[in-house]
């Protein structure tokens, strides 16, 4: 039998940093992911990460601080996407596609021209935990705390605006401001976690823990703490597996999440079918089973 020490990598500071940042990224993506999934914003999250990449590339080439350059770009595109998505004349998904892929294309061109000189761009694209420093950990931690604070303090307005925007508006909830708040938090989350997970995989970390949590509960409040828990647990397991297998960390984390999702999907499918039998006559079993 080959000797295998699961604690071995923890002697390296880079690995400890990598695990900390991955777990934090999993938690913050899981938290904001609840809103992303319930508001049907998965595509916006996906697009946003591509848009932020353009900003990251521009910031890198111009020698501006990554968080500042990509952050301003990200927030601007986030708000722009939110606005475009409200317009009904153009299909929202098409408009988002145009805005974000154009931004991504700018990033790719800059990467092709200046890529060799800017290693951080490659990290943004595919994700890398090797270069994670104290600054990255603090950035994810700060965004995580800000998001947690906003979600706690604005819990009810955010829930109301997500579940039933029209009635929320009538009741005096500033629905547009809540949307802007979520878009800003989403942009910030994408910004600080992108270098860890990578542009191409970040949307999976936004969606997978949240839908897994959704299958495990029927309460919004419970989903809101379950999803970050799943996000950080999969990030923890994924980053450890990644060290021992030498697979890319972002991809491993996403794969662990996908496996967990599959298990829960199969298990809750069976449970769901059982619960249909006990339904009263008002519920449509065919819809329930779906």
């Amino acid at each position: 039998m080959i000797g295998f020490d699961i604690f071995e990598p923890y002697q390296f500071e880079f690995f400890r940093n990598a695990v900390i940042v991955s777990v934090l990224a999993g938690a913050v993506c899981g938290l904001i992911g609840v809103y992303v999934v319930l508001r049907g914003m998965s595509y916006i999250g996906h697009g946003l990460s591509h848009a932020v990449f353009g900003g990251a590339a521009a910031a890198s080439v111009m020698g501006i601080n990554y968080f500042l350059g990509a952050g301003l770009w990200g927030i601007a595109s986030g708000l722009l996407i939110g606005r475009v998505a409200r317009r009904r004349i153009i299909g929202a998904d098409a408009a988002i596609g145009v805005v974000t892929t154009a931004s991504f294309a700018i990033g790719l061109v800059l990467f092709a021209v200046y890529g060799q000189a800017h290693k951080s761009l490659e990290a943004s694209l595919f994700g890398s935990v090797l270069g994670v420093g104290r600054g990255d950990i603090i950035a994810v931690l700060v965004v995580g705390l800000v998001t947690l604070f906003a979600v706690v303090v604005q819990y009810r307005p955010l829930l109301f605006a997500t579940f039933d925007p029209e009635v929320a508006h009538v009741t005096g909830v500033p629905v547009a401001r809540m949307e802007a708040l979520l878009m800003t938090l989403l942009s910030l989350t994408v910004l600080v976690t992108m270098r860890v997970i990578g542009v191409l995989l970040i949307s999976a970390l936004l969606v997978t823990p949240a839908i897994t949590a959704r299958m495990l509960t029927k309460s919004f409040g419970r989903m809101l703490w379950l999803s970050p828990l799943i996000g950080s647990a999969t990030a923890f397991v994924g980053s450890n597996i990644s060290y021992h297998t030498d697979w890319p960390t972002g991809a491993t984390v996403i794969l662990v999440g996908a496996v967990l999702f599959t298990v829960v999907f199969i298990a809750s499918g069976a449970k769901g079918r059982r619960s249909v039998d006990g339904m009263d006559h008002h519920a449509e079993p065919s819809l329930r089973a779906a």
């Binding site: 706690v152 303090v153 009810r156 829930l159 109301f160 009741t171």
Partner: peptide
């Protein structure tokens, strides 16, 4: 959910 003033 209509009691939106409570920040908790």
């Amino acid at each position: 959910m209509t009691r939106t003033k409570r920040p908790w």
